[in-house]
């Protein structure tokens, strides 16, 4: 997998649905199209939530990595 350096990182560890999605939505606003956001979450539901949210909004889910209980998501803003 190519290494993508995120332009912005947010930490959602310890938070549960709906907070990770709300934080991602907020964090994406100041980014310009093409920029990448990294989000860390340990909510077991966040994988499904992030897939659903990016499908609906059209942003590109570049990567889902998992280290133990912690998910790392990379999302590229598309518009």
């Amino acid at each position: 997998m190519p290494v993508v350096a995120p332009n912005k990182k947010i930490d959602c560890l310890g938070l549960f649905c709906p907070m990770p999605i709300l934080k991602v939505r907020e964090a994406m606003i100041p980014l310009t199209p093409g920029q990448v956001l990294e989000m860390l979450s340990d909510d077991p539901a966040s994988e499904a939530d992030m897939k659903s949210w990016t499908t609906r909004t059209g942003h590109e889910l570049l990567a889902i990595e998992r280290d133990g209980a912690v998910f790392r998501f990379l999302v590229r803003k598309t518009k």
Partner: peptide, 8 residues
């Protein structure tokens, strides 16, 4: 309310 917040 939860779904209304996220739009999901």
């Amino acid at each position: 309310a939860c779904a209304a917040l996220t739009g999901e």
